[in-house]
């Protein structure tokens, strides 16, 4: 299990993470980011790709 944290004071809802880890991140109908606080270990690589692509560098895996 991995724990995911997004700094919502930094997040600007650009949605770049959504394509890297669609099981974890999504934009809701109000264009705001929603994410699951935990994910299976198999999602780690995707979440790491989301961390890399985040324009605001707002995503973290809490180990």
């Amino acid at each position: 299990m991995i724990k995911i944290d997004v700094d919502m004071t930094k997040c600007q809802h650009y949605g770049q993470c959504v394509f890297e880890a669609p099981n974890v991140f999504k934009l809701n109908d109000d264009d705001k980011l929603e994410y699951t606080a935990t994910a299976d270990d198999s999602e780690r690589a995707n979440v790491e790709a989301a961390i890399d692509i985040c324009p605001m560098q707002a995503i973290f895996i809490v180990d």
Binding site: H13, Y14, G15, V18, F19, K26, L27, N28, D29, D31
Partner: peptide
């Protein structure tokens, strides 16, 4: 402009 989730759908 806005409608970001809609834009994403077209990807």
């Amino acid at each position: 402009i806005g409608m970001r989730s809609v834009v994403q759908g077209y990807r």
